[in-house]
């Protein structure tokens, strides 16, 4: 069975696609969907073939036409989208895409909106979490008013990507422009919370059951906050929260809870409606969530797996590969490789 997987970037801002593909390749043929010929995953030979995709901003018709072309060539049966920027399109048109003969296992539109950063404040208490006070701003003067109210330091965040901790007005403006120039508006201003960052990746079956999950603590990160090393931990509170989140929303598919934990207190920072870039960690400790998603989407029986060893270390490292430049040219010209 051929499964398409997006998000093949593996540079300083890695995407989940390669980890998802590595979790599947012993059982399935993985077809890579890429937005840029520079994405390393196009050349790593983990995927059987790679296709360039139209940018999500071009809309559903472009996406549909491209998926039909790929389906005709590869007969892909399923697709795992892994990028925030494309997910809205897949969520909105999931029925239409499934009608093309491509299975998805992603959240329904109302759930997708529910965990939007600007809506988290109302969701968090319902699942037993705290959410740091957050303000939506669109201008520097609005941000300045918020700064006067909550004081420094605080977080300046994009609605989809990027977050910077700022300590004064100059660095706040810098972060505001950096994020808005790249990702647009609104900008979110969030109070900082203390504690250690703990993350949970899980899969909901769409009927209220958490099928699999692991909890990790990041030990070292890059300047962008991307994990270098992490460790598996057990956190009963966070696991209970994840179960409640899945039960309450009937969550369908993968998700990541990004939290700050201090004793019993857990503040949710973000809920991502997809796998995180470190998803291979879960596979490596025996909880293969991407395979679980494939089995759920194809209607196979899936046993719950919330059992994993604690104290396992995840180590991300840089690597190089050398390929013929023709491959790059071929991908740019033919949109496939």
């Amino acid at each position: 069975m051929k499964i398409a997987v997006s998000g093949l970037n593996a540079t300083d801002n890695p995407a989940p696609g390669i980890g998802v593909a590595k979790s599947l390749i012993d059982e399935y043929d993985v077809i890579g969907l890429s937005y840029d010929a520079n994405e390393p995953g196009n050349y790593l030979e983990i995927t059987k073939k790679n296709y360039l995709m139209p940018y999500p901003s071009l809309g559903y018709e472009e996406l549909k036409n491209r998926l039909l072309e790929i389906k005709k060539k590869e007969d892909i049966k399923a697709l795992i989208p892994n990028l925030d920027a494309e997910l809205m399109l897949y969520v909105k048109y999931q029925k239409e895409i499934e009608d093309l003969g491509i299975k998805l296992f992603i959240p329904r539109e109302k759930n997708f909106e529910l965990r939007n950063k600007s809506s988290l404040s109302s969701l968090a208490p319902k699942i037993g979490l705290k959410y740091p006070e957050t303000f939506v701003v669109n201008t520097i003067s609005e941000m300045q008013k918020v700064a006067q109210k909550i004081g420094y330091p605080f977080m300046v965040k994009g609605n989809y990507y990027k977050a910077y901790k700022v300590y004064n007005f100059d660095s706040a403006c810098d972060a505001f422009y950096k994020i808005s120039n790249e990702w647009g508006f609104p900008i979110l201003i969030q109070k900082t919370v203390s504690g250690v960052e703990v993350n949970l990746v899980g899969v909901g079956d769409g009927e209220g059951e958490l099928k699999g999950a692991i909890v990790i603590k990041k030990l070292t990160t890059t300047t962008l906050g991307k994990v270098w090393t992490a460790i598996t931990i057990e956190n009963e509170n966070l696991l209970k929260t994840a179960k409640k989140f899945v039960e309450m929303t009937g969550w369908r598919g993968p998700f990541e809870l990004e939290c700050m934990a201090e004793g019993e207190n857990i503040n949710v920072i973000e809920i991502n409606p997809r796998f995180p870039a470190w998803i291979y960690f879960a596979t490596g400790v025996g909880v293969n969530l991407p395979k679980m998603v494939v089995k759920l989407m194809t209607g196979e029986k899936v046993n719950s797996n919330l059992d994993y060893p604690t104290g396992k270390l995840y180590v991300r490292f840089t690597d190089e590969t050398i390929v013929d430049f023709d491959k790059f040219k071929k991908l740019v010209t033919n949109k496939e490789l």
Binding site: V196, V198, I216, L219, I233, E234, E236, T310, G311
Partner: peptide
């Protein structure tokens, strides 16, 4: 706390 043979204590909830 889990104490290993090198006398390192690991706390599995906090890491």
């Amino acid at each position: 706390l889990v104490i290993d043979e090198n006398d390192i204590a690991f706390h599995p909830s906090t890491g």
